[in-house]
Design a protein around this nucleic acid. Structure first.
Lengths: 152, 152
DNA sequence: AAAACTAAGGTCAGAAAAGGTCAAATGAGG
DNA sequence: CCTCATTTGACCTTTTCTGACCTTAGTTTT
């Protein structure tokens, strides 16, 4: 406790407590903390990931910046993590159906949406070999659910 | 968001918010922003393309001008098809950002959702070679948008 | 009417200004 | 000591900015 990374993390969190989105300049921040610029990347990679509830977006070149946005996951703070665990790296269409059914039971999504998701994903997967489809299905399902879960 | 190009972009967008079509003089604008005239071309090429929903037309010589016309994205009933057409079989992250921005402009999705989609997809694509990522990104974007926009 | 002049805008390549990546060196805790 | 997290630095990619040179369209002169 008390490493430079921790300090930088605390500083960024303070800023993010004041605003939902902040924009920083990597060089500027690095100068503030007297470290090399890539240290900032390290802090972002280890402490401001989606799992932590943050989205990071950046632009290079003149006037470049790094934008950090706090995400308010509707269902729960660790929804992304739970989803990752439940879905895993691959999933069959049967398993997907079970998960969707559970989410409907939990009233996190409604029946129509569940059906819609299945339809959209099925269409996207059309014609692919089963082997490959299972991997992609896992990704598609995560994208769909994570996208949905911020809607009100 | 601090580059000169960003400023010029914002200025032009403001004008275009007031009128469908605007006519500017490159020299005049360059003088306003204290830059070289070709900077204006750069802004137009990177931020006011057809993809962005603008048409640019110009004339040289005495009394020359640059005309920018806004082409609104009409939220049609046939949204899924239009979307698939726009996304295509592969798409770069930059092109995706443009599409999302236009959807926000058209009020089909809100800003937070756009950012979220980018984040979720970025995460899902992490570590993949660019070649493969472009194809998957197109699929992910379709899944996300079709899931979102078809539910009521 | 043709030639010359002037007043726009267009192109392109290179410099400058960011941020990104990756692996090696270092350090802290068990 | 070993392992994992942190720190650093060399090298890469993207975006912006600038300036030299080119093309086009009116205007004036011959």
């Amino acid at each position: 406790m008390g490493s430079l990374s921790d300090l930088i993390e605390r500083y960024l969190r303070e800023q993010l407590a004041k605003a939902e989105t902040i924009e920083i300049q990597r060089r500027e921040l690095a100068r503030m903390f007297r470290c090399v610029p890539s240290q900032i990347n390290y802090v972002l990679e280890t402490r401001f990931t989606m799992q932590h509830g943050y989205l990071v977006h950046s632009r290079r070149g003149g006037g470049g910046f790094i934008r950090i946005t706090k995400v308010d996951w509707k269902p729960s703070r660790d929804f992304p993590r739970v989803l990752k665990e439940k879905i895993g790296s691959r999933i069959s269409s049967g398993e997907m159906e079970i998960i969707l059914y559970r989410l409907v039971q939990a009233e996190l999504i409604d029946q129509k949406t569940a059906v819609l998701i299945q339809g959209v994903i099925q269409e996207e997967l059309a014609g692919l070999p089963e082997e490959e489809a299972d991997f992609l299905r896992a990704s598609f399902l995560r994208v769909a659910l994570l996208t949905l879960c911020q809607q009100e």
